[in-house]
């Protein structure tokens, strides 16, 4: 790799570690850009060496912040791009020509992918009218940019109500409620404790995800599982909105590492007496895993599908050779 690209990689790794770049959307795009520059700004004799290089860089990126699953997703997507582009090219007589064609093809494909990522939100939002009907009472949990855009799109043409569960301790639902209401949508902010009491008054639940697993389950803000279990008990459907960049080819067992990283950055208890802190174990997970059987439908930028269909969609964007990087 050129020195310039190497510095870029190091800088990005630092930003990931320090949580200066956070959120699946941001890390997916940044990772893709970095990998584009690696492909562009490094010398490699053939595709196998390119794949090795990308795997090496990819491992470092993933290790910087394993909780950001979108990093690994982007790495795997790029690896798959390289494999696919290589098969598209005819066998050249000239290795140099092959390399340059491959480089150009991969770079363009990565840019297309980034474009895809950028348009995820609008693509998902364009399906909103299929799911949000007039006078619907929708419940959502905490903050999700994807869900926000989804509901705002629906709100342009339809009148409906949204109940936003605040999602303590970060209370990201507060911002969500303010933005929805500011967009003119009839919004009520409620506490986590009120979810079960209110569920009979809800028609559907729409949730965002931090990541989606290969079996169609999802990793989301802690509290999502509570909402999902209550919804199941009251027989209400759950719609999950998620860009494909959040979908991982790994199933849950391999995601244990993510869940074990569970520590919400927001504090939960401000103990007045100092010695209470030492004697109490505070359980404050960042994420929950919501299994596929609790999810009715996944709305992605590639369409609306049942969770069981996820594995088919993964075959289009990931290679089985890249499950372990």
């Amino acid at each position: 790799m050129s020195k310039d690209v190497s510095l870029q990689v190091d800088a990005f790794i630092a930003r990931l570690r320090r949580r200066q770049t956070v959120g699946s959307f941001n890390v997916a795009i940044e990772s893709a850009k970095i990998l584009h520059n690696v492909v562009s700004g490094s010398r490699w004799p053939d595709q196998d060496h390119l794949i090795d290089l990308l795997q090496h860089v990819g491992r470092r990126l993933i290790a910087a912040q394993p909780g950001e699953i979108a990093v690994a997703n982007a790495v795997r997507r790029v690896l798959n791009i390289v494999r696919e582009e290589a098969t598209k090219l005819p066998l050249p007589e000239n290795p140099k020509e092959f390399r340059e064609q491959l480089r150009a093809g991969v770079k363009q494909a990565i840019l297309d992918m980034i474009d895809d990522f950028l348009h995820s939100g609008p693509h998902i939002a364009s399906q909103a009218l299929q799911h949000v009907h007039p006078n619907d009472r929708v419940l959502t949990f905490g903050w999700s940019k994807t869900v926000l855009e989804f509901l705002k799109e629906a709100g342009k043409l339809r009148k409906f109500q949204v109940m936003v569960v605040e999602a303590a301790p970060a209370c990201s639902g507060h911002q969500m409620a303010v933005e929805l209401a500011t967009a003119g949508i009839d919004t009520t902010l409620v506490t986590d404790a009120a979810v079960l009491a209110l569920m009979p008054k809800v028609d559907k639940i729409i949730l965002g995800a931090h990541a989606v697993t290969a079996d169609g389950g999802m990793i989301a803000t802690a509290g999502s599982l509570l909402v999902a279990e209550v919804a199941k008990a009251c027989k209400r459907p759950i719609i999950v909105c998620s860009g494909m960049y959040k979908v991982s080819p790994l199933g849950l067992m391999q995601q244990q590492e993510v869940l074990s990283l569970n520590s919400c950055p927001n504090g939960v208890y401000d103990f007045e007496e100092g010695d209470v802190v030492e004697r109490v174990e505070v359980v404050n997970p960042h994420y929950d895993f919501v299994p596929a059987e609790l999810i009715s439908v996944l709305v992605t930028n590639m369409g609306t599908h049942p969770p069981s269909y996820m594995s088919h969609m993964l075959d289009d964007v990931y290679s089985k050779l890249d499950l372990v990087i």
């Binding site: 999602a167 303590a168 301790p169 986590d192 404790a193 802690a222 509290g223 599982l225 509570l226 279990e229 569970n262 939960v268 208890y269 109490v280 174990e281 505070v282 359980v283 404050n284 997970p285 929950d288």
Partner: peptide, 9 residues
Amino acid sequence: YCLLTAVPS
């Protein structure tokens, strides 16, 4: 100690 949101975990 935990909040309600953490109970399933």
